[in-house]
Design a protein around this nucleic acid. Sequence first.
DNA 1: GGTATAGGTTTGATTTCCCAACCCACACCT
DNA 2: AGGTGTGGGTTGGGAAATCAAACCTATACC
Lengths: 155, 155
Amino acid sequence: MKAAARPCSIADTLALVGEKYALLVLREVSLGVHRFDRIARNTGAPRDVLTARLNRLVEAGVLEKVAYSERPPRYEYRATPAGQELQPVLLTLMAWGDRHLNADDRPVVLEHRCGAPLSPVVVCAHCGGEADRASLSADVRTPGWTTTGPDTDTA
Amino acid sequence: MKAAARPCSIADTLALVGEKYALLVLREVSLGVHRFDRIARNTGAPRDVLTARLNRLVEAGVLEKVAYSERPPRYEYRATPAGQELQPVLLTLMAWGDRHLNADDRPVVLEHRCGAPLSPVVVCAHCGGEADRASLSADVRTPGWTTTGPDTDTA
DNA sequence: GGTATAGGTTTGATTTCCCAACCCACACCT
DNA sequence: AGGTGTGGGTTGGGAAATCAAACCTATACC
């Protein structure tokens, strides 16, 4: 047996969208870029890799193919509701890069409906308080996996 | 010339933490697992890959090596402030996986200070309103790059 | 007919990833 | 003193993913 890793939704999500370019494809789609050629150029993904990513994301229900031409048959890629729910991941990644990598000039600035440039904050849906390190405690539900690792591991 | 991809903080951030296992390493550190062997087991990362990731994350200022023993010299890895600021990325990834991949039983449940199990929501720091697709508009600051691509396009 | 566009597929070279084995310095036990 | 265990890696070679460029199919445009 092969010493399985910790069961975790982060790992499961990354197994789907953690491959190279997958999240950049989602970025483009969510910016309104829906067609193969343009996604390829905007992300820099090789075309064969892009084909693989698109198929996988469609299969996973994150994107869907929508016909925009009958003759010749042509499709574009749009985010499903599940795909749109990945937007928070993109927002938090962007916020971190804006702060730590591109502090002096941000390549893209999102404007919120309220009129301000968006700085995204993660809060608790229940109380509205910020969800940072200090305000959270983990409840690990898999027997043998604590925050400090599996106790006396079976070798 | 080589048809550069869109300038973007998401891409820049992923160039750092988008390689395989990088975010899982961060997950472990943020769960209180700081040592090489245990991080290796809990993430499933091969040891050489883990060595490469840890060095890269230290070099990038996301993790730091802290000595916990002089003789023999031994180090553990801890998140810097910059590393702690990646927590929102982990939270949003986990939330998506909890909802779409592990809806029936979540492997880890985080409890917020308020007592409720955390469901993280991304809001605008300025007005506190939720930041979803409909409430955002993009301002692309790099000449030639719009939301529809570098040259002409119809949405 | 010739050219352009859109969305791929194929080919072959280059990078990563993976995994088992090995190494080193020390602690602990006998 | 010798043997065993632990922590934190490094090394080597094979498997898999990525890359760039060329190629293919179908249709529209001139």
